[in-house]
Deep mutational scan, measured.
Amino acid sequence: KAKLLVLLYAFVATDADTICIGYHANNSTDTVDTILEKNVAVTHSVNLLEDSHNGKLCKLKGIAPLQLGKCNITGWLLGNPECDSLLPARSWSYIVETPNSENGACYPGDLIDYEELREQLSSVSSLERFEIFPKESSWPNHTFNGVTVSCSHRGKSSFYRNLLWLTKKGDSYPKLTNSYVNNKGKEVLVLWGVHHPSSSDEQQSLYSNGNAYVSVASSNYNRRFTPEIAARPKVRDQHGRMNYYWTLLEPGDTIIFEATGNLIAPWYAFALSRGFESGIITSNASMHECNTKCQTPQGAINSNLPFQNIHPVTIGECPKYVRSTKLRMVTGLRNIPSIQYRGLFGAIAGFIEGGWTGMIDGWYGYHHQNEQGSGYAADQKSTQNAINGITNKVNSVIEKMNTQFTAVGKEFNNLEKRMENLNKKVDDGFLDIWTYNAELLVLLENERTLDFHDLNVKNLYEKVKSQLKNNAKEIGNGCFEFYHKCDNECMESVRNGTYDYPKYSEESKLNR
């Protein structure tokens, strides 16, 4: 008799109507990190870190770059004969040098303040090359056809396309004075040089004057150069050297050249137009028929994500570079809930034993079982409120962090190594801060989002509990077992918050 009662009780308990509160689960393989956990499985997430590029040089917003090819900045601007293909260059979106560009200054020497000139050019998007001192009329008392084997072109001695090597005419090199007034309405880049012979005999042979000088002056520039005559090792078949100089001439300003020898005179100059998204990159990537809004030396990035880990040097509207390998923000729920887990921000989770793959029309909802059958029903209101809140948060985070910009490298010469090392340390410090901030932001927001979901499920549970009161009992896994019969209409009233407690209280009292 006792065995019969136990079996009867078990049958009745199993047959009781139930309603459970749960949440969506799926077959997603997404994982995120939080402050407290690593690799948390979630139903949905968004990636904030771009880690792919196309490996190509592309047009930037429809404008092609200027590819210097086998030449570098120095060779292009001075007019190395091997860089003749660059003479027609007028406009570009950015400038590309190759790491091993070999054609710079063909006659050995240095372009002074080269690093600063590169910085200036990094904001130039177009130029006009014009004859600042016409070759045939500007130097009537001097020979202007100086050439050298060091600047050979097609097997013949030649010289820079933008400079003139002035030497004596006959047996004399009379003092020369020439000036140019900038009437271009924009900055003009003027380049010139000073020749330093290897011996007094060479000085006399070329310029006749043993104590020659070169003077260059404008409103913002004033220097006097004296040739340094000295024996030097042979470089590119030359014992002599040429140093090259430049200045930016403001609109309306005048530049005056005065010399008694050794002047490498300007022939062509450049009127410059600035462009905020221009820059110089060093890259071996090849040019393709493609378009982008962000270019790196590795390749083009076409992404609206706020961060990238491809390269710190970028041109155009680019994500911020960070050292992170993963920045994924959760938008959905835990896919593998932890039992009795309390989140960092106070939300209680884990009283549900598992997510439901059968509930596909919402994030949170119900599963019921009664004599009429069983089924899932999503709670659309709480789901939609959660979707709206999380979507707004993700968009806000992306908008705040998605300050796209150009980031170019800084140039230092060989004598500025300590400054370069200090600059690298400062840049590394800023990069570490950006990386830390980005990672911390994602970790915190992921923790908040998961706790937010847990709290929403808990609130749904409490909503049902407050309606049923003692007409049902909690069975410990997020479910309630009714003390009365609850048909589909009754189940719907529980879900929509209109459950009639008094209607079922007498039946429940008897069954309790």
Rank of each mutant, 00 (worst) to 15 (best):
A212P: 08
T247F: 09
K156N: 02
I35K: 07
S198G: 05
S219D: 07
E37W: 12
I132M: 15
L7F: 15
H195V: 01
S199M: 10
R161W: 06
V124P: 00
Y180G: 00
I255K: 00
T34Q: 11
V40T: 09
W165G: 07
P266T: 02
E102T: 08
S215I: 14
V96E: 04
E128T: 13
N220V: 05
T260K: 10
G22Y: 05
S93E: 08
V32G: 06
K156R: 10
L86T: 11
F144P: 01
F225H: 14
S150Q: 03
C83T: 03
G79Q: 09
L49S: 11
P266K: 06
L191S: 01
Y180N: 03
Y114M: 09
G104R: 06
I112E: 04
I112S: 15
K186E: 09
R129F: 05
K3T: 12
L36W: 06
I63N: 14
L49E: 05
S85P: 09
T226I: 15
L272M: 12
D113F: 10
Y213Q: 11
K186T: 13
S28G: 10
S199V: 08
S215R: 10
K135G: 12
T148S: 15
I280T: 05
E131S: 10
K38A: 05
G155T: 10
G275W: 01
E115H: 05
Q238G: 01
A265W: 11
L248R: 09
S218T: 10
F225K: 01
R232T: 01
G275V: 07
P197Y: 10
A10W: 13
K175D: 08
N162C: 08
P227A: 15
Y173T: 06
P251M: 04
I19W: 01
I132S: 01
N262K: 04
T31H: 07
Q67D: 14
Y180M: 09
E277I: 11
Y160K: 01
L249M: 10
T148L: 00
T143E: 07
T34A: 08
Y107A: 10
F225T: 10
P197A: 09
T282G: 02
D110P: 14
I19M: 12
A13H: 11
S198V: 08
E50G: 01
P266L: 11
L248G: 05
K38S: 02
D51M: 08
P227F: 03
A10Y: 09
S199G: 15
W246K: 04
E202R: 13
T167F: 07
C106E: 02
Y107T: 08
I280C: 01
D33E: 13
E277V: 06
R274A: 02
L49K: 08
A64P: 11
A231T: 09
K186D: 02
G252D: 01
R90F: 11
N162R: 00
H195P: 02
V6N: 09
W92Y: 02
V214D: 07
S215T: 12
P197M: 10
N178G: 13
A13N: 14
C71F: 09
G279V: 06
